[in-house]
């Protein structure tokens, strides 16, 4: 089926000790490896080796990893990315610890995407044999898994075309300059399966990270996460609130280096044949923050 999901986010942090406290003790990720100045984490309901990589020094995104179902999907995506005009490199097994061989694509948005077909399987924290519903002693928020990311670039329409043609993603929702067929795109929310979005792109500077998000079950868990952020003095950007776009429930907050994180719940089941929801610029406030119905001054300015 090609790309199954965004498998990992690799980000820079200014202070590793503070970052570890945030990702392990506040968010409740499980540390699985520390090597060469990098710390690797997984959520309790993830089976692959890691989904978050922290690297000390600077701030912002290093790269994302996307996992395909079959090894031969790599060749297919490599050809499509080259046809699109991207620089694509082969990567060997082990260049990323516990990650298979694959390719590294320099995207039109000036981000680095790795595509791989396997990671060492550690298993979820509840196992596969008559599993309990959740681990008994979660720490902090206890996020089960990474969910999606939002990035910025100058040409959103071009990036949507890239993701459509190389990753076989489809758009579930868009912000367009108008409802006309020749409208330009201000934002696009894209996925491959039934998850409402795996990667969203909004207009802004090339190569920047807006946020990466962790999955939660429902409103109650989102509210509980926000309570814990107050207890741990985590700066909350927005929320708890709802996104009009995706219908998801959310808190935006910042890690100790200033990278924006999100906890995200809900979002409806998407299908490729569902008509795309279109938002117009006058309603973008409601689309992003469904209750306040206006953007805050950080939404477009705080990027790492």
């Amino acid at each position: 089926m090609g790309i199954m999901r965004m498998g990992y986010a690799h980000v820079r942090v200014t202070d590793m000790a503070e970052a570890k406290d945030h990702y392990a003790n506040t968010l409740g990720l499980y540390e699985v490896l520390e090597e060469d100045g990098r710390v690797y984490y997984k959520g309790w309901d993830e089976w692959d080796h890691h989904s978050v990589v922290l690297e000390e020094g600077g701030v912002g995104l290093v790269k994302f990893g996307f996992k395909v179902q079959y090894e031969y999907d790599i060749d297919d995506i490599e050809k499509k990315a080259e046809t699109f005009g991207c620089i694509v490199e082969r990567m060997s097994k082990g260049e990323n610890p516990e990650v298979s061989d694959g390719i590294r694509i320099h995207t039109p948005s000036d981000h680095l995407f790795e595509v791989y077909h396997a990671q060492t399987v550690l298993g979820t924290e509840v196992g596969t044999h008559n599993p309990e519903s959740f681990p008994r002693h979660l720490v902090g928020v206890g996020v089960p898994a990474i969910d999606h990311a939002l990035i910025t670039c100058e040409d959103v329409k071009g990036m949507e075309r890239f993701l459509t043609e190389t990753f076989s993603f489809y758009a579930t929702e868009r912000v367009q300059t108008s409802l006309e067929p020749d409208a330009d795109y201000i934002g696009t929310w894209m996925t491959s399966g039934n998850q409402i979005h795996q990667l969203a792109v909004i207009a802004g500077p090339q190569g920047k990270l807006h946020h990466f998000a962790f999955k939660l079950a429902d409103w109650n868990e989102v509210g509980h996460a926000a309570d814990l952020f107050s207890m741990d003095d985590v700066p909350i950007d927005v929320g708890p609130t709802r996104h009009g776009i995706t219908r998801g429930q959310t808190v935006y907050f910042f890690d100790p280096a200033g990278n924006r994180n999100e906890v995200f719940a809900g979002g409806y089941t998407s299908f490729p044949d569902r008509p795309v929801s279109i938002w117009t610029p006058d309603q973008i406030g409601k689309g992003i923050f469904y209750h306040s119905r206006e953007l805050n001054d950080r939404f477009t300015s705080v990027l790492t």
């Binding site: 200014t14 701030v59 912002g60 700066p235 950007d237 910042f254 890690d255 100790p256 280096a257 200033g258 990278n259 924006r260 950080r298 300015s301 705080v302 990027l303 790492t304």
Partner: peptide
Amino acid sequence: GCRRGGCAV
């Protein structure tokens, strides 16, 4: 912005 040195706002 982020209050954590990441965004320059």
